[in-house]
Computed example of a mutant assay.
Amino acid sequence: MKTKQRLSDLVAMSPDQLQDELLKLKKEQFNLRFQRATGQLENTSRVRVVRREIARVRTLQQRKLTEARQV
């Protein structure tokens, strides 16, 4: 259920907001990778969740770009 709610929130965002969200997620992904490398990562499942959220944001960006070109 959380994924659908999160997706609807992302769909409602503007392209600039999606870019900001992508930057935030990339920073979090970097921090998680750093924590994993130093052995400090506690929630290992978060790595997978963040990676999938990045993919969602990029997909939405691509869709919005395609829609803008068609109009």
Rank of each mutant, 00 (worst) to 15 (best):
M1R: 13
M1Q: 14
K2L: 14
K4R: 15
K4G: 09
Q5V: 15
R6H: 11
R6T: 03
L7N: 04
L7Y: 11
L7V: 02
S8E: 09
S8W: 06
D9A: 03
L10A: 03
L10G: 10
V11E: 02
V11L: 06
A12G: 03
A12N: 15
A12R: 12
A12Q: 04
A12I: 02
M13R: 12
M13S: 05
S14E: 14
P15H: 11
D16V: 12
D16S: 15
Q17V: 15
L18A: 14
L18Q: 13
L18H: 15
Q19A: 12
Q19Y: 11
Q19T: 14
D20R: 12
E21R: 11
E21F: 12
L22A: 04
L22Q: 09
L22T: 03
L23Q: 07
L23G: 07
L23W: 08
K24C: 10
K24F: 06
K24Y: 05
L25S: 02
L25Q: 01
K26W: 14
K27W: 05
Q29G: 03
Q29M: 02
F30T: 07
F30H: 01
N31R: 06
R33Q: 06
R33M: 13
R33Y: 10
Q35L: 02
Q35P: 07
Q35T: 02
A37N: 01
T38I: 05
G39R: 03
G39W: 13
G39V: 08
G39M: 05
G39C: 04
L41N: 01
L41S: 02
E42I: 13
E42C: 10
E42Y: 07
E42S: 09
N43R: 09
N43F: 11
T44I: 00
T44R: 07
S45A: 05
V47Q: 06
V47D: 08
V47H: 00
R48I: 08
R48W: 08
R51W: 11
R51I: 11
R51V: 06
R52F: 14
E53V: 00
I54Y: 00
I54M: 07
R56H: 05
R56E: 13
V57E: 05
V57I: 07
T59Q: 04
T59Y: 04
T59C: 01
T59I: 10
L60K: 01
Q61E: 13
Q62H: 08
R63I: 15
E67N: 08
E67R: 11
E67A: 07
A68R: 13
R69C: 13
R69G: 13
Q70V: 13
Q70D: 11
Q70T: 04
V71Q: 12
V71E: 15
